[in-house]
Amino acid sequence: MSRGRTTTDRATAAIVRSLAARPYRISSPVVLTAAELAARGGVLPVWADPMALADETEADRLRERRLVAGLVVAIAVVVLLWTVRSLLM
């Protein structure tokens, strides 16, 4: 039995709407001194380069596509088992 929408539910929905309307959180720019950069062998760390951070996220997003390959293999195995079973029975 549904208890319907309560005051609390409406308050939560209002919070969700207000959060969605807020701007994205940003952090202050990372400042890397020449000495710190030298200590890292002159290689800019990923966290100091917003473009590198964006590339990393895009790579992770694209990596998720392998799940589709997993689905294809799963379907293929199930179909194969079903076919073998049907042929043998």
């Binding site: 990372v30 997003r61 799940l67």
Partner: peptide, 17 residues
């Protein structure tokens, strides 16, 4: 699970440290 390939949170992320 395979739907995570297209339905994930990556497009809503940002360089936040």
């Amino acid at each position: 699970i395979p739907m995570h390939a297209v339905r994930n949170h990556y497009r809503e992320t940002g360089p936040y440290l």
